[in-house]
Design a protein around this nucleic acid. Sequence first.
DNA 1: TGTCGACATAGCGTGTTTGCTATGTCGACA
DNA 2: TGTCGACATAGCAAACACGCTATGTCGACA
Lengths: 111, 111
Amino acid sequence: MAVTETTTAETEGDLKVALKALASDKRLKILDWLKDVKTNFPPQEHGNQVTEGACNLFIVEKLGVSQPTGSRHLKVLVDAGLVVATRRKGWTYYRRNEDALTAVAEQMRGI
Amino acid sequence: MAVTETTTAETEGDLKVALKALASDKRLKILDWLKDVKTNFPPQEHGNQVTEGACNLFIVEKLGVSQPTGSRHLKVLVDAGLVVATRRKGWTYYRRNEDALTAVAEQMRGI
DNA sequence: TGTCGACATAGCGTGTTTGCTATGTCGACA
DNA sequence: TGTCGACATAGCAAACACGCTATGTCGACA
């Protein structure tokens, strides 16, 4: 099948890393869009929008940047553990890591 | 008397600005130290540690950086509205802006 | 095997951050 | 008025972030 899921940081990761990943307009937008993939992105014939997330190309297009730039923003989020990448067939899907995001929000209460 | 309080951003400020200010080991440390000025810093004969906060020099020394570098880190926090600076006599005191910090934490819950 | 579509990586120019030293400002006090 | 202590600002170099174009990789399909 060749399905690969990528998550670098743990749920209770380094707060600084998460904050650096979040301190960007475009990455905040991506996270917001991923809250509701179905309404924020065109339909995908290939991957399940709900379980797997949004296709890389759609995110890049909506961001209004070049494909490599968009991919790098997504990589920052993945490396921080805030987003999960699912690679299948030719496409890569991205979805929110809700556990990590709520963990960060929880840590922020003790800031 | 010549007492000046400085707060640039509002309580419900730009989340990105707050996150950028927070995405730094040293600034996170400062905020943590300011939670308990009395135990984290030497006694001050001049300013009230509880109501006014910690003296600039003590923070700089504890940070282990030069005085201008420390001052700039503090300025970033002040500009983001997360810390309040009180200038009196020759000294400048810094204390946490709890309202702003809890506001940021609250916003993070909707991230 | 060859090509094509979807990303990922490399490399580069530019702007921002972070450290420093040097210097300016400003109130207190001799 | 002059000096000193406590910051703030200016200016500079190194490191990092972010945009792009060019190119590599890799699975699907002819």
